[in-house]
Design a protein around this nucleic acid. Structure first.
Lengths: 206, 206
DNA sequence: GGCGTTCTAGAACTGCCATTCTAAATGGTA
DNA sequence: TACCATTTAGAATGGCAGTTCTAGAACGCC
């Protein structure tokens, strides 16, 4: 067609991801993103209609990468491996992990809501991830999925591993070796299938 | 002395806490805080030297309230009760819980660092909390404190309960009853004292 | 090889927000 | 009662960041 682009959508997303990972959402100003890429600020608007569009696109990319690593394992019912998958994923590129795991979306999009198509894509990603969880839980029990078991699975496979590595992401540097053991023991000690009514300890009834 | 103040330090902190809890850090502009209190914007500067001063003061207050509820239990070695203490604390006032548990400090203070005295107070609070953890871990073992055990204790008592209730804080509304059981079983299944080398399962060695 | 489309390039605009400033009000004290 | 430190009150300021605008450059097609 016409003039070849020097700057791709991808490189703007990459720059935004790095900036947020290193300095928080406020560090990812349009000028900072442009400066990092070496482009004029105006060029960003040829790819993204607004700041929240580029930030939410970066969020979607990171979320898709993460859930894409876990979902296949979940669908096979391999909960433990799925929980451990966060380790290679987060060390593969630390910036994306810091971006995704250290910031709530609400802190990114509070000024302006992201455009509809990007928001819809995130909803699709979340639904796909949710259905993978349901498949995992169903595979482990009698096929039915109770809310409590779903919450347990999400905690064991998603939130707990994140909580385990989060302090080390904040400090920076490599993950200590014992985080793998913690995730492992967590799965050995807390089953996804909720024990219906017998408290583990007498005091637990409370 | 002189003219009596209509607006206290406390009510500005309260307003800032609510605004962040409801709409994220960017919602807590100086004018929004003032409007919520019914004061002119200038009045805030008679109590706080800057925006990051008031936000960090609010952070310190919430952090002190939370750690103050846990520390006494920790020092007595009552890890399970400490882990469960987050439940009454967070339902006592949901706004402070949302403020503290849903936002990393980095997203609050990224524009300007908080003034030195407030930062130092936070360091004191963090040290006190850390020492309570060390006391708890020491009380449960032979008195020595290994890094791994400290990390386990922080996860079991602090990060994991937060991770368990976070999804429900994000959605809003009351906590489902099974979160208490999850925290309980977590402590029954994953001991603070690290099992030195015997994997729980054969595959765990990895 | 001109032409139109798409891009770069960067200056200009707009609005918002933290902060400051000036003036008026207040109320205990001397 | 007069004083004056402190506060209210709210307008003014200054800067920054998102967004838009204008001009010019590059490339592939007809």
């Amino acid at each position: 067609m016409v003039r070849t682009a020097r700057f791709s959508e991808h490189c703007f997303i990459e720059a935004a991801t790095h900036l947020v990972a290193e300095g928080g959402p406020a560090a990812a100003t349009m000028q900072a993103i442009a400066r990092r890429v070496g482009a004029p600020t105006g060029s960003i608007y040829h790819r993204f209609e607004s700041r929240s569009a580029i930030l939410s696109a970066a969020w979607n990319a990171a979320y898709a990468s993460f859930t894409g690593a876990l979902a296949p394992l979940l669908r096979e019912g391999r909960a433990r491996e799925a929980a451990l998958a966060i380790l290679p994923w987060s060390s593969k590129d630390e910036h994306r992990a810091r971006f995704l795991l250290l910031h709530e979306p609400v802190t990114l999009f509070e000024d302006a809501p992201p455009p509809a198509p990007v928001r819809e894509e995130l909803e699709r990603l979340e639904e796909a991830f949710d259905s993978a969880f349901r498949a995992c839980v169903a595979a482990r029990g009698d096929g039915s999925v109770r809310e409590e078991e779903l919450a347990r699975a999400r905690f064991l496979i998603f939130d707990a591993p994140i909580a385990i590595i989060r302090p080390h992401l904040l400090k920076g540097g490599p993950l200590p070796p014992f985080v793998e053991r913690m995730i492992d023991e967590l799965h050995a000690g807390l089953p996804i299938a909720a024990t219906p009514d017998q408290g583990i300890r007498p005091m637990a009834a409370a």
